[in-house]
Design a protein around this nucleic acid. Structure first.
Ligand code: FES
Ligand code: FES
Lengths: 152, 152
DNA sequence: CTCAATCCCTACTGATTCAGTATGGTTTCT
DNA sequence: AGAAACCATACTGAATCAGTAGGGATTGAG
């Protein structure tokens, strides 16, 4: 259960896409500039997101990415697991659990599992549609329409 | 919000102590052997646990550690934060949040905060007393009294 | 057709963190 | 005196992370 910059950048990119649902494909370069994400790093994230079936890509000039499903049906959990792999407990798990000799008889393991499960619930209950809404409200109330209106 | 071996080992050690509450001090060596934790690594953890006020130490021969408060009043959150530092969000936080230019107007940040908060709730609601209970039930039902009875 | 834009994919690297070890010191019981 | 135990810091090999590099494949525009 470890969150890295992949999740941060990846979720920002997906929110950006959700804010433009319906319009044509959005290029990685555009997102990279709006969200201040290193361009080549973002490209790698999109490879994973596409392989997970969350976005579809249009290649060639004027190409880009778009959500492959309605934003209401994509959760943060989908995005995070596409980028970081299955959300699993990092302690009392796997080989170490076999090595400690306790097997299933470990009170600590239950705590870690409940914590992971709680995170999974939060992530699974939050959709891109909600986040896009929240983000756009932020940008309307502020004077800095980074997301909705084209800057220069 | 990252959990490392410190938390795993530290919690195991604290559960071990909670199982022997009331008896005299327990040496780090004994815990290290029962829980299969590298001895010198465990010593470091106890330094942190003592500085956090969770355990008290008795120095010298026949010395050891004991819980400094009743097991009912020590939560997993106390243990984890003593060992890993404050449980904080690892994305959209600190310097990076300042650098991204969004400040408070970031929809993603809310998700990470809710996830961290959920973990904090789970950890804060679980006491060592409960875990010691659970662990001792495990050991009674199984034939392997690692925790309660002294092996040889 | 040619070319630029864009996606696609793998490999590499410097920095950081982790897990564990090493070393030596201090305190206290026997 | 000596052993047992806690105290504290420094060091190291391995793994992971964040980001870069380089090239290849596909497509629209002129
Ligand atoms: S599963 Fe091995 S110590 Fe918890
Ligand atoms: S706070 Fe900066 S991107 Fe979320």
């Amino acid at each position: 259960m470890r969150l890295t910059a992949k999740s941060e950048y990846g979720l920002l990119a997906m929110i950006d896409l959700a804010c433009r649902e319906g319009a044509g494909p959005v290029s990685a370069r555009a997102i990279s500039e709006r969200q201040a994400i290193p361009a080549k790093f973002l490209e790698q994230l999109f490879v994973a997101l596409r392989q997970a079936g969350l976005v579809s890509a249009v290649r060639g000039a004027r190409g880009g990415f778009a959500l492959d499903r309605p934003a209401e049906t994509i959760t943060v959990l989908d995005v995070v697991e596409a980028l970081e792999g299955p959300l699993r407990t990092t302690v009392c798990d796997g080989e170490r659990a076999a090595a400690c000799g306790k097997g299933k008889a470990c009170a600590a393991a239950g705590v870690w599992e409940r914590a992971t499960s709680a995170v999974r619930t939060v992530f699974g209950a939050t959709t891109l549609a909600e986040l896009a809404d929240t983000q756009q409200e932020f940008e309307v109330s502020a004077d800095v329409p980074t997301e909705a209106a084209g800057g220069s």
